[in-house]
Amino acid sequence: MTTLPETTDKKLGLVIDLDTCVGCHACVISCKGWNTENYGAPLSDQDAWGASPSGTFLNRVHSYEIQPEAGAAQLVHFPKSCLHCEDAPCVTVCPTGASYKRAEDGIVLVNESHCIGCGLCAWACPYGAREMDHAEGVMKKCTLCVDRIYNENLPEIDREPVCVRTCPAGARHFGDLGDPDSAVSQLVAERGGVDLMPEQGTKPVNKYLPPRQKDELGTTGMHAPRLDPVIEDAGGFLGWLDKALDRLPGGAGSASDSETR
């Protein structure tokens, strides 16, 4: 049914940290890998080794340059997949009931055997999170790895979206954003997570953590700060070694030693 549930028991989603994302595209590749082998039709490629390769992806990483009023420009890598919106316009436009939002956890899915491939849901999504698979003629989108997160055949550590599991920078977090006490909700509160295109009225579940403020060049001068002097009164083994070496002929302590003799 393409009417939206009034509320969902959970709001499962992702929190993406734009401060730590290094733009390595590991999540893109692992997502493509997992979702080609699992839920629904494989994610096809066209002309993969030719002059103009193109293919279906459920997660893509953009890069943006931001120029502040003053100072150096900043580069931000920006992963984007379905935001599992609370007011998902992609669901209500679907004529067949193929698109739906789950009442139990809020995941937005496509039942591919009902999809006629009209593409209207992709028109309705402001974020470009839905892509029509060229080979299969059905709509593909992020499943929030629904076939991993509840999968008891996987070791517990792997029961999270593969993009989250893979990210070497820990820039992707998965959890229940409907629960204010969950780790992801805390993270969003602490770091001031934001919605993308809030004016579109989609109420996205996924949140983005803005990059932290950069260090200012200039506070430490042109050069690296001078190193502090080496510790004078070292104790312990190093202190003993220091003193022992001093006592050797030619050492700092040897002259005074000879004076006392």
């Binding site: 049914m1 393409t2 009417t3 679907c94 004529p95 009931g97």
Partner: peptide
């Protein structure tokens, strides 16, 4: 199947 979701679509 496109005849089924007239309530929303």
């Amino acid at each position: 199947k496109a005849f089924t979701q007239w309530r929303s679509s």
